[in-house]
């Protein structure tokens, strides 16, 4: 969670039960009335929350409960966030704050990837419903904008649909969901699927007519995202790079998922790639025979997916922390699947 300047969690011993640690909130007896049950094993990076297996830190699989000084030390954020508590890490003072209850109030501003946009909106709505005194705003602009603005402090949270590059500012990275990239075409196009190989050739400008990939004759209008887009990076690294291809400069570029969707919807010969959330009104193609569905991404058969992230500059804003914790909690992850994205922890 504190990826990047990775302090493997401040581990604070809370309770020690050798072997298995079980928690309930509030301190009811170990009965079926428990609202949340967390099971952790020493030296195992996965835990169970209400019986479901989860990575303790899905971005760092070496985080496990450990034994020290004859005590079992557990990752405090994993524990407390799954109990719906807010955990704050103050790097300056090396201090951990865990908070329960209290009313959250204030504003959070977000900006960045348009792939994250629909999800972030739903997150915000749900969070504001829970905490009526909180206001959350989201502006798009792309992953680059998300990185830039969160690093510059103009927004509290940046949204990214790709991993940060080495040249980019050092930010706290919080995975919030996974996402597939769908290949979309106009509904009028007669083909139902492409191979990754054909797709690569289309985007490299080597195949320019639909009849060469099994469709009716017609020049393919290839839509792509602008340089720097997270979705484009994903597409590039998963479709073009493996085949050693370059994206043709003759691709028609658009600034957002929505614009690609709109263009393909109105262009009878259009093809584009978008986040799974943007497939309404267009046809999502089978890729290597696999439908663009969440199941297929989960089971690894659908070939193009990536993680979506929230980025923050510091970890010291209680409200922002609480919001991100909410997004990563069970409740938040439910929204993730409702919105057609893919939950983190599996």
């Amino acid at each position: 969670m504190f990826k990047r300047n990775k302090i493997l969690s401040v581990i604070v011993g809370i309770v020690a039960i050798l072997g298995i640690a079980s928690f309930m909130v509030p301190s009811n007896a170990l009965t079926a009335t428990a609202k949340t049950t967390i099971e952790l094993w020493l030296n195992k990076p996965q835990a169970k929350v209400n019986g479901e297996t989860r990575w303790i830190d899905d971005t760092n699989h070496s985080v496990t409960p450990i034994s020290k000084w004859g005590r079992t030390l557990l990752p405090v954020r994993f524990i407390s966030e799954n109990f719906g508590l807010v955990t704050l890490w103050d790097a300056k003072e090396s201090k951990v704050t865990v908070m329960q209850g209290g009313e959250l109030a204030g504003t959070i501003s977000e900006a960045g990837s348009t792939s994250v946009l629909p999800l972030a909106e739903k997150f915000a709505l749900a969070f504001m419903k829970k905490h009526p005194k909180v206001r959350i705003s989201y502006t798009g602009g792309g992953t680059g904008a998300g990185i830039k603005q969160s690093a510059g402090g103009t927004v509290d949270i940046g949204a990214a649909s790709r991993d940060l590059k080495i040249s980019e500012p050092d930010l706290m990275v919080h995975a919030i969901a996974r996402d597939g990239v769908a290949i979309i075409v106009n509904k009028g196009i007669g083909i139902t699927g492409l191979t990754i190989d054909q797709l690569g050739k289309i985007y490299a400008g080597q195949v320019t007519d639909w009849k060469d990939v099994g469709g009716k004759s017609g020049k393919i209008n290839v839509y792509t995202r602008e340089e720097g887009s997270g979705t484009r990076d994903t597409f590039q690294s998963m479709v073009l790079d493996p085949a050693g291809l370059k994206m043709s400069p003759a691709c028609l570029a658009k600034k957002s998922n929505g614009e690609i969707q709109m263009s393909v919807q109105s262009d009878p010969n259009g093809i584009g790639y978008v986040s799974f959330g943007y497939t309404e009104g267009v046809k999502g193609l089978l890729l290597n025979g696999k439908e663009p569905t969440i199941e297929n991404v989960k089971n690894g058969s659908y070939p193009i997916s990536r993680r979506l992230y929230f980025l923050t500059k510091h970890n010291d804003n209680l409200l922002v922390q609480a919001f991100i914790a909410f997004c990563r909690s069970d409740e938040g992850q439910k929204i993730v699947s409702q919105e057609g994205y893919i939950q983190l922890a599996d």
Partner: peptide
């Protein structure tokens, strides 16, 4: 034929360009 202008290039990419980078 489609094409691209200096201005539309800026408007399309400025938000995605990494700070301080060659882009």
């Amino acid at each position: 034929d489609p094409s691209r202008t200096l201005t539309s290039n800026i408007v399309g990419q400025i938000e995605e360009a990494a700070v301080g980078g060659t882009h």
